[in-house]
Nucleic acid binder design. Structure first.
Length: 470
RNA sequence: CGGGACGUGGCGCAGUCUGGCAGCGCACCUGCUUUGGGAGCAGGGGGUCGCCGGUUCAAAUCCGGCCGUCCCGACCA
């Protein structure tokens, strides 16, 4: 009984490793229509945890959930010129319904700015109606040419927030508040990912936005993944949808808007940022199952000991599972829980019971500890927080090793082979950006030298983060 | 949409060149022995060989067409 490699090693073929994890950890698989995915129960439970954590933060930022239709009249999309131009290539359009040709084709939402603004314009009359802060959890469709499960699928699940404000400054502040208090906080403190924040270059901006902020994470192969965006829409949509309000002095003004979203792509980011050759590795605060208690084999009071440990976990409010499937060999079960990335495993068998000990095994670094049986539950719970912070530290170390400070485009090309390049934006510019794009390298974001967001118009020394991206 | 590869039980593949009973590993089912890092033995079930047409006594194999998937280039959360 020797340990065999279960997955294609990351170093051998990273995309293949990713596919192996999706399959072996029972996360997701391809749907019958190209670009669609079936999210399996375990994969979906991870998304549900993400939703729960994000939803709490979104509500804390004052937004309320609502729901708008999947079908959008094609004419709505056309109203905002940049918007329709940006999305036209990836629209799915319904032309028949009820067995008849439709009078006006209906698009399946690629995002909901247009339909939501149609209603915002009815709901907003006065400055007293502002700010209007709405979020929706939904699926959207963007026809993809090269789909990859979770990372880029034709249909995906997300949340999209849409807000109206009385002034440009308020809209700006809210877009950055969402970026920091909802997205950055969630990614750093729950997903244990040290993401970079910044503004997108004009060419990478959302279609119809005046400014796009983004969060970028580094995957274990050194490539970048955009984990979320928050846009300042200015008055672009307000003007074409006549979203107007009367200010306190009786003047009619267009509202200033934001929109912001994160999607099931986050699951792909989780896999590729924390996963290793043993499979998925989920930080405890996110994990749908934080601790699994394994009955190694029955007899000798093992069942009772397992029940006792599980009882203490339940009392502590820990998300846990008991694995008493002794019909399946221990090795297979241990490997299976590792593949699924459960942060901690507590092993209990007759041998442990006899010694009055239990074995605690960490998923992130593989260390095993023998502890007194009666303390196993409480010690494990304490370990969860330690693992959480150490996973963030490790991810930060891995990233920092692969971020290079450079001065020339050639150096950018070299260091983005396996990581990020940080270069003064003045050395790149829009021409340099186009040049790099030909080699598959993009400017992921711009920020100030200390990593904070650019200030509109006021910054002369912005730093560009360049990388190859998913 | 251009360039390359590939479609054979649930998954991964061999067989195709040189036409002749559709195979292997994993998974699955039954039984026994096992169980502290993917257990062993024995028995068993499951495939219109991507689709359509052609050649032939005979096609997974040869020919034509179509469909689909994956990888590499132009878009995105």
């Amino acid at each position: 009984m020797t340990r065999q490699p279960v997955l294609t090693p990351q170093s051998e073929d990273f995309p293949r490793w990713y596919q192996d994890v999706l399959s072996k950890a029972e996360l997701a698989e391809n749907g019958p229509v190209r670009g669609t995915m079936v999210i399996r129960p375990y994969g979906y439970s991870i998304w549900e945890r993400m939703q729960a954590e994000l939803d709490t933060r979104i509500k804390a930022a004052g937004a309320e959930n609502a729901y708008f239709p999947l079908f959008i009249p094609e004419s709505y999309l056309r109203k905002e010129a940049e918007h329709v131009e940006g999305f036209a290539p990836e629209l799915a359009v319904v032309t028949r319904g009820g067995g008849k040709e439709l009078e006006e084709p209906v698009v399946i939402r690629p995002t909901s700015e247009t339909i939501i603004n149609t209603y915002f314009s009815k709901w907003v009359q006065s400055y007293r109606d502002l700010p209007l802060l709405v979020n929706q959890w939904a699926n959207v469709v963007r026809w993809e040419l090269r789909p990859r499960v979770f990372l880029r699928t034709t249909e995906f699940l997300w949340q999209e927030g849409h807000t109206c404000h009385a002034t440009a400054g308020e809209a700006h502040d809210y877009a950055t508040r969402i970026l920091h208090d909802v997205y950055l906080d969630f990614m750093v403190n729950v997903m244990a990912l040290p993401v970079l924040v910044g503004a997108k270059t004009p060419s990478e901006r959302f279609a119809g936005a005046i400014n796009t902020f983004a969060l970028e994470a580094m995957m274990r192969d050194g490539k970048a993944l955009q984990m979320g965006t928050s846009h300042e829409l200015g008055q672009n949509f307000a003007k074409v949808f006549d979203t107007l309000f009367l200010d306190s002095e009786g003047r009619q003004e267009h509202v200033w808007q934001t929109s912001w979203g994160v999607s099931t792509r986050l699951v792909g980011g989780l896999i590729m940022a924390h996963g290793d050759d043993r499979g998925l590795c989920i930080p405890p605060r996110l994990a749908p199952v934080q601790i699994v208690v394994i009955l190694v084999r029955g007899g000798g009071g093992s069942e009772e000991a397992v029940a006792e440990v599980a009882g203490s976990l339940r009392a502590a409010g820990v998300r846990h599972r008991v694995d008493s499937d002794v019909e399946t060999s221990f090795g297979r079960r241990a490997t299976g829980w590792e593949l699924k990335g459960v942060p901690l495993r507590i092993e209990v068998g007759p041998r442990d019971v006899e010694a009055g000990l239990a074995t605690i095994v960490r998923r992130d670094d593989g260390t095993k500890t023998q502890v007194r049986m009666g303390e196993a539950g409480s010690l494990a719970v304490q370990l969860l927080e330690q693992i959480q912070s150490e996973m963030l530290d490790q991810a930060r170390l891995r990233r920092d090793e692969r971020v290079a400070d450079v001065d020339t485009l050639d150096q950018v090309r070299e260091s983005t082979e396996n990581g990020f390049a940080r270069i003064p934006w003045s050395q790149v510019g829009e021409s340099g950006e186009a040049e790099l794009a030909e080699d598959g390298i993009s400017i992921r974001l711009l920020h100030r030298p200390d990593g904070s967001l650019p200030r509109a118009g006021a910054d002369t020394e912005l730093v560009a983060i360049a990388a190859r991206a998913y």
